[in-house]
Nucleic acid binder design. Structure first.
Length: 306
DNA sequence: TGCCAGGCCTTCC
DNA sequence: GGAAGGCATGGC
């Protein structure tokens, strides 16, 4: 745990003592899909978190939340970005565990694992199956526009931007599968509908999953159609803060084989066991740095490894 | 046109 | 139990 310094100038709120921190990499690394860059020069983004429009930017090692905002929004922002987590210590421990992960961290340090809304994360990562990041982004945004609640954002002058909350389980349970298909969710549309129904009306306590042990929580999530091992780990890691989760997608498979298995074909189960053994409770952070490094640095060099 | 994208489900052996 | 095949969609 670290002591974050929170200051306000009467309007904007400044979070400091949070280094290492990269707002851009944190928001664009593929864990969240509703943030949009709002400036070509500044590192500034607008997003919708738990029904609220947040405008944030990075100045030096500080996170600035554009105000005026109430205390509840400040607390929510602190929690969403997990600013209480000592990321510097985590990065150092991972460097000690393996210099190869250190190389990945050096490429893009300061990636914070967010604490997103579990339902939004669940839908997002069901959609992510056999899909690309730009298309996932588009589907999630379409779901919000067509089924969420509009949130007006007053701006200077008369202009008014409209954003949309992410639709609740009840909202999506009441949508027709055809309407979900219109959001480009493809063959995942019925999965989303079924999950929404079960959570809205079927008595499944999604938020209670966070109180379970990791293995049991993962099993509960995998009861849903469209939620396999990888998607379950994404939900556990990016929403519930189970840092031992190690989602294995194509890129993680490639870099793990490249780094640890002599580029040979290995069952996913073996990679998973290896990662849990090697990284323990920091597996999730290791995964995110490795994923980002694999996609954005190694790229073509390891593309053939699957 | 064919291949791929933050996989999963079903079928078949 | 493990290995194939299919799946919507759009970019390259």
């Amino acid at each position: 745990m670290v002591k974050v310094v929170v200051e306000s100038d009467g309007c904007d709120v400044r979070f400091s003592k949070i280094a290492p921190f990269s707002l851009k990499d944190t928001l664009m690394c593929g864990q969240a899909f509703r943030w949009k860059s709002t400036s070509n020069d500044l590192c500034a983004y607008t997003g919708v978190v738990k029904g609220k429009v947040l405008k944030v930017r990075q100045e030096d090692d500080c996170l600035i939340l554009e105000g005026p905002v109430d205390e509840d929004t400040v607390r929510m922002t602190l929690d969403y970005f997990a600013l209480d987590v000592d990321l510097g210590e985590i990065e150092n421990k991972l460097r000690e565990i393996d210099p190869a992960v250190g190389t990945a961290i050096d490429f893009a340090p300061g990636i914070r694992l967010l604490r997103q809304d579990p339902w939004e994360a669940m839908v997002t990562f069901i959609i992510s199956a056999r899909n690309s990041m730009p298309l996932i982004r588009r589907s999630v945004e379409l779901l919000a526009e067509k089924h969420g609640v509009p949130i007006s954002e007053r701006r200077q002058g008369d202009s008014c931007d409209v954003h949309f909350s992410f639709p609740s389980p009840k909202m999506l349970a009441e949508a027709a599968v055809e309407e979900l298909l219109e959001c480009r969710t493809g063959f995942k549309a019925p999965y989303i509908r079924e999950a929404a129904e079960r959570i809205a009306f079927g008595g499944f306590d999604l938020y209670g999953v966070g109180d379970l042990e990791y293995e049991e929580a993962k099993s509960k999530l995998m009861e849903f159609k469209g939620v396999g091992s990888k998607v379950a780990d994404c939900i556990l890691l990016f929403a519930f803060g189970f840092y031992q989760a190690f989602p294995i997608d194509v890129w993680v498979t490639r870099i793990m084989r490249y780094l640890y298995f002599d580029s040979k074909k290995v069952p996913l189960r073996v990679i998973s066991e290896f990662a849990h053994e090697k990284f323990g409770d920091l597996a999730g952070y290791a995964q995110q740095y490795l994923f980002y490094y694999a996609r954005n640095k190694l790229g073509p060099e390891i593309r053939g490894l699957e």
